[in-house]
Write a protein that binds this DNA or RNA. Sequence first.
DNA 1: CAAACACTGAAGTAGATACTTAACTATCAT
DNA 2: ATGATAGTTAAGTATCTACTTCAGTGTTTG
Lengths: 111, 111
Amino acid sequence: MLHDPAQLDLMFQALADPARRGMVDRLCQGPASVSQLAEPFAMSLSAVMQHLQVLEASGLVRTAKVGRVRTCQIEPTALRRAESWISERRMLWEQRLDRLGEFLAETSDEN
Amino acid sequence: MLHDPAQLDLMFQALADPARRGMVDRLCQGPASVSQLAEPFAMSLSAVMQHLQVLEASGLVRTAKVGRVRTCQIEPTALRRAESWISERRMLWEQRLDRLGEFLAETSDEN
DNA sequence: CAAACACTGAAGTAGATACTTAACTATCAT
DNA sequence: ATGATAGTTAAGTATCTACTTCAGTGTTTG
């Protein structure tokens, strides 16, 4: 299941919202509680929780509760999966362009 | 505007659908017409067109019409933008983990 | 123990998404 | 010119998404 479609759906969907990307940004600085995550946003805590659930379902964020505070962390393996899906495609296309370039160069050599 | 939020929204949203990722996959093999793109899918041509519009709005695909056939191509710069957003975050987080590792190593050295 | 804190869950709503069908418009081949 | 091809547009619909408010549940703290 390298590149499970359903998981890619969840991951890219999770990244397709500025608030959730903001939370990912924040978590890249280090772990945070739900309220710390919520602080920069103008939305209710409840809304932040829902975004957090999307991030967690996508595998991008892992959370754990200790006492009354839930601490959230980035899960870098998920980021790597998304990144590799994109980079595989980009590289494929760029190789194609390279081969095309070589072909054109060879063809014009023959003049 | 390096990493314009609105554009990232469109790009990740575009990638969050298996049919659209399938089309991107197909286009990585080389350019294709709308009907060629549509061929592997069980949906109507109309639906494919709508996915194509999403891909084009996101900047991932560029299309041009000659005669009655519209030819579609990958736009690698868009793929690179999405990839770099992710890789910047991943690297940030991994650096953080490295520093944490060093810190722990130093601390235990002092015992 | 009481109040404050940090979150959680349920229900409701406006708007976005992913389709469908059907009618239409150019272009190309005969 | 006729018909087939390749795509386009519009309208409708079911489902999903991103919130909201409000009423909880455990957990600390004074």
